[in-house]
Write a protein that binds this DNA or RNA. Structure first.
Lengths: 333, 333
DNA sequence: GTACTCGTCTAGAGCGCTCTAGTAGAGCGC
DNA sequence: GCGCTCTACTAGAGCGCTCTAGACGAGTAC
């Protein structure tokens, strides 16, 4: 920078002004400085800039590498952050890399806030994190923690899905739950409530699972094994999320069970996966773009006004009916 | 830091030494300083450290958000980088965010090197990037550019796949190519060569595609439409990658075509997707972990010895036979 | 005793920027 | 000619660390 200033015959301060695109330099000087900088191959140093500025204007995003819905969310985070003048840094949690490691990496790179996509850490850790910095949790409710929270109204979503199945004449509706996955407990609760409300308490059944394809495959195997022992298949399954629904669909297709003729399957998320199934997946749409935008805005607003208390945004999910759901076999028989 | 030093009754320099875990402080003082720091809630500032140190020991990774093979690679990058004492920062390219934007973000956060997963930028840009900093390209060969290159021997992989299909009696083998996708031209060439070598020039056919599920679905539709007009289906398809194979499988299943009875499908990558198909996908395995490790090592080695010229690593791919390939219909008929 | 070394610790420069306060000079009204 | 404002620019402190050079005392060798 000093070299540029010297060669262009101006002060370092002016070079700084020009590189920040601030007013206070004549057009003429501006061009000259930029030209000289280009010749020398000068590019401003981020770390020094950060240090001097005191602010990084960078948001960190923690996500789980293989979670497809997260990549949908990330697609929404970038443009909104850019619009608000923030940079985005990603840090993935993987099998060998815990969420807290991923978060610490972001923090040590001076992210001013962290957006956590479906975090699975201890509430105590999240609370501490939320007090140390600005944190936003997407999908995962953390009751007592000092973090913003963006999610969709899981209950409403499940209710719509259940109404849909019930209208199609389904009674034996099983739920594969999402285990400790974000939103799972709410979905599970809503499923139970819906079954009870319709007097189907005796049919109520929750198969433990999680938010992966494997758990869908697993549940499929279980159901098929039961069928082979003479128990009837459920006529419909409400899966914990799209990936789980997908795994289930795979297992069923493999075994020659026709969806939706023999069984209806409903997912949750409407991730881009949902379009890519042999039959389109009927699923509850969470608007990833909208959720991402809310998360970014929460973070930025709280960054810009630290008196703000953490808030909660609840978005309305919407059932999307595609090919994987149809009339119940008994009803049509 | 000054506060910690004052409260612990030592100099700032000593606090620095202790926080870097360097020798030169007594056990006693060390404990006292750490305790005080903890009380105050002090954590070292990354930007300042970076600035003073001159090195960030951080690797940047540019990837494409929805590319599943990339997430497999990322899983391998983290542990290897950690082993070598480097941090990792991720930056995704999406529809609205170009590769160069993603890379610039990494650079401005002081990454010392960038690892590009299947980059699709202009060779000229990559070359310039490779001269400006240490760059490693994974999967995408960039002939003249000053970058390291890690890939698997596409030719060998395709050859294995073709031998496998030919042994099963297939003759009408179509290739859906990966368009401009990384490795595509090599795979296409190897497919053509294999067909010619076996005197199947007349059956040679390449359907243009890319590395997404959509292109597989698209190709499937095309083939099915042709069948409906009286043209026979190919007996086997070699897809550009797993995602494409998956899309094709979806389209076929939907239309009632039985894989592998009516048609065999072979993918490429052996991403974690491959296990999750109704029938396991026969595919060419690229060892993501190994590729990731090579990429990280290339970057680090060149960072630590800048006299090093860019190198190339070629890994051997390996055909994995699963359920999506079987004897050719004609052969069994 | 002197001359070493060794372990522990400190002073202070410097990393490459930003930002506040301020200067110099031009233009303008009266 | 005076004071005023406005534009274009500069000096220099400071961001929070690291790192070099060196101080200080205790131990060891002769």
């Amino acid at each position: 920078m000093a070299d540029v200033a010297a060669k262009a015959g101006v002060s370092r301060a002016l070079v700084s002004i020009i590189f920040r695109g601030q007013p206070g330099a004549s057009q003429e000087t501006r061009e000259r400085v930029l030209r000289v900088a280009d010749e020398i191959g000068y590019r401003p140093d981020g770390a020094a800039r950060l240090l001097a500025r005191g602010r990084s204007r960078t948001l960190g995003v923690m996500f789980t590498v293989h979670q497809t819905f997260h990549t949908d969310l990330i697609e929404g985070i970038y443009p909104e952050a850019e619009r608000l003048g923030y940079d985005v840094l990603l840090s993935g949690a993987t099998k060998g890399r815990s969420e807290s490691q991923a978060v610490e990496a972001l923090l040590s790179h001076r992210c001013e806030a962290v957006i956590l996509l479906g975090p699975d850490s201890e509430p105590a850790y999240l609370d501490e994190l939320g007090r140390r910095t600005v944190a936003v949790s997407v999908s995962r409710r953390v009751p007592q923690a000092h973090v913003d929270f963006v999610h969709s109204a899981e209950g409403k979503g499940v209710r719509q899905a259940m109404e849909h199945l019930l209208e199609l004449g389904h009674r034996r509706i099983v739920h594969i739950d999402g285990g400790r996955g974000p939103g799972s407990s709410e979905r599970r609760r809503a499923y139970r409530a819906a079954m009870r409300r319709h007097g189907l308490e005796s049919e109520l059944r929750v198969i433990p699972g999680d938010h992966t394809e494997e758990s869908g495959i697993e549940a499929g195997r279980l159901l098929l094994a039961e069928r082979d022992q003479g128990h009837p298949l459920p006529t419909a399954v409400l899966a914990g999320n799209d990936r789980c629904a997908w795994g289930l669909l795979m297992a069923l297709t493999r075994a020659g069970v026709d969806v939706p003729r023999d069984m209806s399957v409903v997912g949750y998320d409407d991730s881009h996966l949902a379009h890519l199934m042999p039959i389109g997946l009927t699923t509850v749409r969470q608007d990833a773009i909208l959720m991402a935008e809310h998360a970014v805005r929460f973070a930025v607003e709280r960054l810009e006004n630290d008196a703000l208390e953490p808030r909660e945004a609840v978005l309305d999910p919407k059932l999307v009916v595609r090919g994987s759901s149809g009339p119940a076999p008994e009803a049509s028989a």
